[in-house]
Amino acid sequence: MKKGIRVQESTTNKHIVKASKYRGKRLKDARAFFTFMMPSLLGTLVFVIIPFLDVFKRSFHTVITKQFCGFQNYRTVFTNQAFGLAIKNTFRFTIVCIPLLVVIGLIIAMPVSRLKNAGVIKSLYLFPLAMPTATIVIVWKMLFYKQGFLNLFLSKLGELTGLWGEIHKDYLGSSAAFWVLVASYIWKNTGYTLVLWLAGILGISNELIEAARVDGASELQCFFKIILPNLKGSLYTIVILSFLNSFKIYREAYLTAGAYPEQDIYLLQHLFNNWFVNLDFDKMAAATVCVGGFLFVVIMLLQHLWDSR
């Protein structure tokens, strides 16, 4: 009888000891977590979060007198023609570029994934990533100016086939500038996408594909029924990162065409920069909140899609 009680007591004691030990470990973990995080967290607070709240506050105030003005700034932004144009162009650029990049990357990745040593090919495609924009701009100009290589090539082709004469199109000063930007975006980011697709493809178990082949599936069936569905995760990643990189096209746009380019490539980035230079901080604050909010929602949605897979 007595013995039984004692045994019970000692197990509860053990439980208590274990629980407090666990709590102690959690506390220790939390302390370590925040110690390691501290520098980064402080910096993020000071340089990003707090100033962003300030921008949010400013978006409801006038810039000079600092009076509260409700949604006035937002109204100004949304009725601003340049803002409409920039949104439209940026949206168009994204809608054209991202599917194109994703598909091109996959088309290249499929055969590369079967090569035994694809090292050289991968490096060649990755190389543009390492080329600073400033160094590439002079080459772009040689290619796309009125008397540049592209027109030279096209004219020669016309001469050879007899279908058309000399071509003197100014690609950077006309609506074709949009496609120059698309090309330069694809040029720069194909390697990045290729590597991500390859990682995805090589992650699919070989047995799965072999088994399907043994069952008589054709190459195309293998691709659409097994490989593609297994690449969904990679697709989300690639879309998000391509989107992130699509904003950097501003460098090429600015360097080849300046702060006020042809209106087809007047992007949000140009607009923000020009407002910044002109000290239009009220409009900028409102637009920052809108664009930032929009991106936040899109990222959260994609994350949700990611997680619910």
Binding site: V48, F52, D54, F243, T288, L295
Partner: peptide, 19 residues
């Protein structure tokens, strides 16, 4: 942190300037 990583420079330009 992931969201902050994905925000383009233009969105953080004004806040960086202020600080």
């Amino acid at each position: 942190y992931v969201v902050l990583m994905l925000l383009p420079f233009q969105v953080t330009m004004l806040s960086s300037y202020l600080v």
